[in-house]
Design a protein around this nucleic acid. Structure first.
Lengths: 339, 339
DNA sequence: CAGCAACATGTTTACGTGAACATGCTCTCG
DNA sequence: CGAGAGCATGTTCACGTAAACATGTTGCTG
């Protein structure tokens, strides 16, 4: 900066002003400074700037894993929205979701050079009592039920599961089996609870859910279990991958989808429309979730005060070819869905 | 830091030493300082530390998109490897891969608070002449053919495409059609060139390749074209998504896979083993690519000198159920593959 | 026991920036 | 035409840290 100032024949403060786009600089002087910057190859030093201003123009994202479809899509949206606001995104991965790791991460959080944090909160391994954030660090949580304490953004898991279950009931199915996500996942529990509640409302006792780990392999294994039973005509899987695995199991055992058994997924990953048969599923707007996270987070950063509250992004049923009326019974409603 | 020093009755320099884990501090003093840190809630200021040391302990990752399967897996591996070395990862997304955006990004690169950069270099929209990195900023490139200039890590695209094509020829197919990725993608071009070369070596003239944009929809559209032709018995798609879309097209037109037409993909995404039929594909070790990137990058950072050169990570054929001998001809080799 | 090495700890300083305040100039208006 | 407003620009300083150097203390050796 001093070099630039010397070359342009001004003080370093003027260089700073130009660099920050202040208006109170003479046009001719500005041009001279900009020219000097170019010729010297000046780039402002982020560290010094952050030290002086106390702002890093960077947001942290804490994730347990990037390898699930939803997290990736959300991260993508977050990165895009942040870039749009001229913030960069720093990943803070937690290698394994043990209490030790998580505590360590929170401890190191304020050590990170970030102005705020988005937590993609897969698992509730910690009591909320243990979940203490550094004071004054704005935070937005995705997928939590700690609504009162933090700013929360999430897709409407409950309504999505309700729509999925209801869709199958509307087609005339007498019951709906559920391939659930892992116990520790908030969203898995939301979906499971809502599936059970929807059945209860219809006067149906929910069968025992089968728990998988979101993977196609789990879906396949649990799908084989369900495929061997005569009474199963409708399966609601807690994500598309497990639905895919279940459909493979059904194919392998020669059960027709949707002729004999209907399958519904959750997420609407890009590939779902090309599964065979194309999968009826619940569409989640990950982009919107990510975008809203950043919007809320930047608002907290700028106003310097927390704004606890939960924002719910709607989910919607996408009917494709993996669902139809059950084989024996005629549908109770008018007509089976056709994609 | 001054508060901690006062509370522990030492100088701030001693606090600094403890904070940085220096050994030349008396054990009793260290404990006293640590205790003081805890009680004050001291966290070192990254900005000041970076300003003083000139190191950020952060690595940048430049990507055009996070939404492709491979990029995400690679990013996951990069983040994990970086965290392991106690570096954080900053995303530097390029919203749209125009020349303007890219130039701007490089220009702002040294403005970012990073010690080095990994570029996941999807598209060669820029001439390499235009591709000027800030001096002294270590960089590792994934998926480039600028081998001489930079440190490059990549999966063995060419050998993967060769294996895929050769597998189909070994099964007895007279020719192999190719659903390629977009023109601008380096890896798409590598796969296409290698497919063509493998056919040429077998004395076969390659048919005109069909270009898609990696999406299932593109695969479906191009798959429909191929499915309508009588002479097509084997399709090699440049990624699993397009292979999936093509299989859907084949199913829709009642063409049996692999009975009438064999399909091979590329990537071995997790879902591929549960496609119907389970997809024969080329496995890429994204984790290894990401890990190697960080290893190379950290080495450059620590030694402060570039080490241009290309590291190739092997790919391997995974045979599943989507490939078999062609319907008319008996296989030239011993037996068709069974998964 | 002198002399010095090895080590713990303190003091001073600079990293690059932008806020706060100071200065000097020009223009306007009574 | 003089006073003061408005603006461009300069000067000083502190942000929190760690390197470099200085100092003091202990213990060992000849």
């Amino acid at each position: 900066m001093a070099d630039v100032a010397a070359l342009a024949g001004v003080s370093s403060q003027t260089v700073s002003r130009v660099s920050n786009g202040r208006t109170n600089v003479d046009a001719a002087t500005r041009d001279r400074v900009l020219e000097a910057m170019r010729s010297v190859g000046y780039q402002p030093n982020r560290a010094a700037r952050a030290l002086r201003t106390g702002r890093f123009r960077s947001l942290g994202v804490i994730t347990f894993t990037l390898s699930t479809f939803g997290n990736m899509r959300t991260l993508d949206a977050i990165a895009t929205a942040a870039a749009h606001a001229d913030y960069s995104v720093t990943l803070i991965p937690l290698p394994d979701p043990t209490v030790r790791t998580v505590s360590g991460a929170y401890q190191r959080l304020s050590e990170q050079a970030v102005d705020g944090v988005v937590i993609i909160f897969e698992a509730h391994l910690l009591d909320h009592a243990d979940f203490v954030l550094p004071d004054g660090l704005p935070v937005v949580v995705i997928d939590s039920n700690a609504g009162a304490q933090f700013t929360v953004v999430d897709a409407d898991q409950a309504d999505g599961a309700r729509q999925a279950t209801q869709h199958l009931l509307d087609l005339g199915h007498r019951n709906v089996w559920h391939i659930a996500g892992p116990d520790e996942s908030f969203s898995a529990m939301r979906r499971l609870d809502s599936w059970r509640a929807t059945l209860r409302e219809a006067g149906i006792e929910a069968p025992e859910p089968l728990h998988g780990d979101w993977s196609t392999e789990a879906g396949h294994r649990l799908g084989l279990e369900l495929a061997r039973r005569d009474d199963v005509t409708a399966i609601f899987a807690a994500n598309d991958q497990m639905a895919l695995g279940a459909m493979r199991a059904l194919h392998e055992l020669g059960r027709d989808v949707p002729g004999e058994i209907s399958v519904v997924g959750f997420d609407d990953m890009e590939e779902a429309s090309s599964f065979w048969p194309p999968l009826t599923t619940i569409h989640q707007d990950f982009s919107e979730v990510g975008r809203l996270c950043i919007e809320k987070l930047l608002h907290e950063i700028e106003t310097k005060q927390r704004a606890p509250g939960t924002t719910i992004v709607p989910t919607r049923l996408v009917v494709r070819s993996s669902t139809a009326a059950p084989p024996q019974a005629a549908p109770t409603t008018t007509s089976p869905a056709t994609p």
